[in-house]
């Protein structure tokens, strides 16, 4: 069934057993994003220490794709330097906007490669990107820039 590409086992696992979920203190920056078409919401907090994202915490209401994406983000970006995080962020956004044409690099994206199938469902790309855009804003509010040109989201 076509759905196999979307609901990879890894995604369902992260959805049912999210990593790092729940908002934690202290934090340096926080952002709340909503997907206005469906009402999904997420809040992301970042704390930085010693030149890395020492914690990323989040909470939200949403579908399996957005919630699993937040869990994967936590796994991929926590403990990273801003430069590393920017690179991973860019790779994930490129994968999501690639309409299924981008071959993901497991060394960079880890479990994030499971989202390759999501890129073929335009209605769900926004779900997958919601936590990543909230993270970028939260980081910016903490004074850390994780944007690169490629990670600009075209809505």
């Amino acid at each position: 069934m076509m759905l196999d590409g979307l609901y990879q086992e890894i995604i369902l696992d992260h959805y049912k057993h999210p990593h790092g979920r729940g908002l934690r203190d202290p934090f340096n920056g926080e952002a709340h994003h909503v997907n206005p078409t469906c009402g999904d919401e997420i809040t992301v907090r970042v704390s930085s220490a010693a030149g890395e994202f020492s914690d990323i915490s989040y909470d939200g209401l949403g579908c399996s794709i957005s919630q699993a994406s937040a869990s994967v983000l936590y796994e991929l970006l926590r403990g990273r330097s801003p430069e590393d995080a920017a690179g991973i962020h860019e790779a994930f956004v490129a994968l999501m906007q690639g309409r299924g044409q981008v071959e993901p690099d497991e060394d960079v994206l880890g479990d994030g490669i499971a989202f390759a199938g999501v890129a073929k469902f335009p209605a769900r790309v926004k779900c997958a990107l919601l936590p990543w855009m909230a993270f970028k804003d939260a980081a910016a509010r903490a004074g850390i820039d994780v944007s690169s040109e490629a990670s600009e989201v075209k809505a």
Partner: peptide, 25 residues
């Protein structure tokens, strides 16, 4: 199960329903 996921699985079966807040938050 979140409505998005309900709607996605139903769509795979040709069943077209609406999911979301229906412009009535």
């Amino acid at each position: 199960v979140h409505p998005h996921d309900v709607g996605q699985v139903l769509d795979a079966l040709g069943v077209e329903v609406r999911v979301g807040h229906h412009c009535a938050k």
